[in-house]
């Protein structure tokens, strides 16, 4: 038995194309954003406790580790936002399904165009 194959009963991974993998990435970034919003609601709500508690919480964010997590956050938000618009167009624009692959390319191009300048600027501030 070739070692490259997964053992039974799993079978091989289905080799979907860009449509399937953008869907997978959309789900992963969606769950990621859910947990971010969870933390974000809590830290913002701290201002109800006291402005000092809020400031203390925000102070813990100003570290290089959190700065790197923010890079991941922006990467996820940008992808989720633009792929979300693509999914909306696939369902609501009559020609959407026919041009979904072009729109996938556009999502990646816009993502790179916004993400790369952000990373440069952000890391200059953080480090």
């Amino acid at each position: 038995m070739p070692s490259a194959l997964p053992s039974a009963p799993a079978g091989t991974l289905y080799r979907g194309r860009d449509g399937m993998w953008t869907w997978v990435a959309h789900r992963i970034t969606g769950v990621m954003l859910f947990f971010f919003l969870f933390a974000h609601v809590i830290d913002t709500a701290l201002v109800n406790v006291s402005p000092e508690a809020y400031n203390t919480a925000l102070e813990t964010y100003k570290t290089p580790v959190v700065a790197l997590m923010e890079v991941g956050l922006v990467a996820g938000v940008l992808f989720h936002a633009f792929n979300g618009l693509r999914v909306v167009a696939v369902d609501f624009w009559s020609q959407g399904p026919r041009y979904q692959r072009h729109m996938s390319v556009a999502v990646v191009v816009i993502w790179v165009a916004l993400f790369v300048p952000f990373v440069v600027r952000h890391l200059m501030n953080a480090f």
Binding site: G16, R17, D91, P97, Q100
Partner: peptide, 26 residues
């Protein structure tokens, strides 16, 4: 339908399956 387009890619008859599903949604 989550519009992964796997069905459209898989169809041996070249049917635009996801487009058909979208037309029913519309």
């Amino acid at each position: 339908c989550r519009t992964t387009f796997n069905c459209t890619d898989a169809c041996p008859r070249g049917i635009e399956v996801t487009k058909a599903i979208q037309e029913v949604k519309r």
